[in-house]
Amino acid sequence: MMISDTAKWQTERAQFELEEVERLKKELLRAIDGDDYLKEQVIELRYQNQILREENQCLKDKLEKAHEFMKQFVIGGINLLEKFMEWIGEKVKDVGRGR
């Protein structure tokens, strides 16, 4: 009788440990899948970041060309760039005054 009880207890203990192993296995597999997802997200974000850097550089180049172009033209003794900057300054003041 005692051997039977011990065997039953060991069987129940083994079953419990097997269930715990299965639970940990599932948890580990979810964590691994999560890592793959995060890796994909990092790759995607790096790609998007590179595209934005290239676009930013292109816009900076265009702005520099526009500045150089505007500096070439003079209106009333002031180059077009300075005139434009004055106009922008006036608009900012107007916005500040609530116009």
Rank of each mutant, 00 (worst) to 15 (best):
A66V: 09
I43D: 14
Q10E: 12
M85F: 11
V95G: 05
K62C: 05
E44K: 11
K60Y: 05
L38H: 07
K91D: 08
N79V: 00
L52Q: 06
L38E: 13
K60L: 11
K39V: 04
I43S: 09
V92H: 03
E86P: 01
R53Q: 06
Q10D: 12
L52R: 10
Q10F: 15
S4V: 12
G76L: 04
D5H: 14
E82W: 05
L63S: 04
D94H: 07
I32K: 07
I51C: 01
L45H: 09
W9T: 15
R23H: 03
Q72I: 01
I32P: 00
T6Y: 09
G98H: 00
R99D: 13
W9D: 15
I88K: 08
D36Y: 10
Q41C: 03
L81D: 05
K93W: 05
Q41H: 04
I51M: 02
V92C: 02
Y37E: 11
G89I: 03
A7F: 07
K62W: 07
L18D: 06
L38P: 00
V74F: 00
L81C: 01
I75D: 01
S4M: 12
Q48G: 02
D35N: 13
K62P: 00
F73T: 06
M2D: 15
L29F: 11
K25R: 15
A66M: 07
L63Q: 05
L59Q: 02
K91R: 09
E19H: 03
Q57F: 03
A66T: 05
A14D: 12
N49P: 01
N56Q: 09
W87C: 13
A66L: 14
F73R: 12
L18E: 15
R30W: 04
K60W: 06
D94V: 01
D36Q: 11
